[in-house]
């Protein structure tokens, strides 16, 4: 299926170009924003598209097309940061340490002292029906450190396997798991606070 799409792209078929832009432009821009910030994310995405089109003949199918394209975006973004002498640290200590379940909620032996409260809404659909909850979740997402937000988006929004995420972001699997866990925990805390307020 993907091979067919690539052949159509190489043959210059407009429908194929429309398909990859529709499928990937949003997530490419999101990834670029997370790495380089809003101001130059568009430029990074355009650079990445040029690379994608020029390298399409060399695509060997060792990963999915999506993973391959996002790896190119990540590389373009990090190259851009290096050129501008900005830090390319991903998944460093500050990213990893932030947003665990607060230690205050446990006693010295590690058992709950401030236990999780009861949530009024049982299902994800019921929870998402609350506008205030959606707003708070959006805010929490935006406040996550960049690496945590990116991994959460790639894993839970896009459903990519962890191996692919590690390739895209060039970070170790153990770090990426910790970052994903911290991000999910922060969102759990956001809901917990709202449901028990």
């Amino acid at each position: 299926m993907e091979q067919e799409l690539i052949e159509q792209l190489l043959a210059g078929e407009e429908a194929a170009f429309r398909q990859i832009v529709t499928d990937y432009q949003g997530i490419m821009l999101q990834l670029a924003r997370n790495i380089v910030g809003d101001a130059i994310a568009d430029e990074v995405v355009q650079e990445a598209w040029v690379s994608v089109i020029k390298s399409l003949k060399k695509f060997e199918g060792r990963s999915s097309l999506k993973t391959w394209i996002l790896t190119i975006v990540s590389n373009c973004a990090k190259t851009r940061l290096r050129k501008e002498a900005r830090s390319v640290a991903w998944g460093d200590a500050s990213d990893i340490e932030a947003s665990a379940v607060s230690p205050d909620r446990f006693n010295p032996k590690g058992f709950w002292s401030n236990t999780p409260g009861h949530w009024q809404s049982a299902s994800p659909e019921q929870l998402l029906a609350s506008e205030q909850l959606r707003e708070n979740l959006d805010k929490s997402l935006q406040q996550l450190p960049g690496a945590q937000r990116t991994i959460l988006q790639l894993r839970d929004f896009e459903g990519l396997p962890m191996d692919d995420i590690c390739k895209i972001l060039q970070i170790s699997e153990s770090n990426s798991r910790v970052l994903l866990h911290r991000a999910r925990t922060k969102l759990w805390q956001t809901i917990d606070e709202l449901e028990n307020s």
């Binding site: 949003g26 994800p124 929870l127 998402l128 959606r134 997402l141 839970d156 929004f157 969102l187």
Partner: peptide
């Protein structure tokens, strides 16, 4: 539930 809900949130 949090993970299931996150999976239903759309990219912004």
């Amino acid at each position: 539930r949090t993970i299931e809900m996150t999976q239903q949130l759309k990219p912004s």
